[in-house]
Design a protein around this nucleic acid. Sequence first.
DNA 1: TATTGTTATACTCTATAACTATA
DNA 2: TATAGTTATAGAGTATAACAATA
Lengths: 145, 145
Amino acid sequence: MTDPLAGLPGYALRRAANAMMAELGERLVGESLRVSDATVLILVGAKGRPTASRIGQTLDIRRANMVPLLDRLEAAGLIAREPIDRKSLAIVLTPAGETKLRRVRGIVAAFERELIERVPAEHRDHLLPALDALWRGAEGAQSAQ
Amino acid sequence: MTDPLAGLPGYALRRAANAMMAELGERLVGESLRVSDATVLILVGAKGRPTASRIGQTLDIRRANMVPLLDRLEAAGLIAREPIDRKSLAIVLTPAGETKLRRVRGIVAAFERELIERVPAEHRDHLLPALDALWRGAEGAQSAQ
DNA sequence: TATTGTTATACTCTATAACTATA
DNA sequence: TATAGTTATAGAGTATAACAATA
């Protein structure tokens, strides 16, 4: 069945993102991680002791939804919550979390490399700038957190 | 907080798609339609009397998930299920569905126009081919329906 | 007064398994 | 034997409201 929607950039964007998420998800099942788990691990590994709120602000995940996500990572022994003061908690990687992060970085880097290789060479360098414009250009229309 | 993931095409793809879906969803609340509802309406309007299964194959929606979606459109008086034989049902637009489709087409066309205008001119023509390559290039990795 | 972490809750999307009836 | 429609169910993701404690 020919798809009359195939010429619409918004539709192609959704289909491409869905396919990408499904494939990355499959590559992470071996690590018992969801895509959002891996994203948080990478962010925590790159940043110094962020709070859950700051992670959520960066990744566009609501505070309330960070709780079960971090509970899961903590239960897996990958992160710990360390008091900053009597109100805030710093999210830090455990040694097991550091080891896991190294594996995750490898999986993600290989995946991103394969992704970009699927794009015909003449379009390749345009993808990230175009996606960035769509992402950040949607600001006014996006609901605030 | 600087986002160390911002340079990854896969991450940018997800963020762009999420922002796009949220914005299109907002534009469709006035029509009391979800994005997937609008997508099905457009597809049915372009194709002659498809079955639910064929719609699902085209849009990558499982048969089982088509049922409540079509129930909703039928309850809203926008589509009808007409017997093809004693096993299959053709999905057709009602007169109200045709009217609604005209409005939806206008909303979607305006949105797609704005989307593409947000992309800097030098990258604009590369977006759709790049997304198509990512979408269709994921085939082998995608789970079959 | 604003922010952090949290609980509870609900809605959407998506996925699987299984059943009936029919091609 | 394969396909169409359906039911039931479960897992994710995401959203809001509200609360206590603290900055």
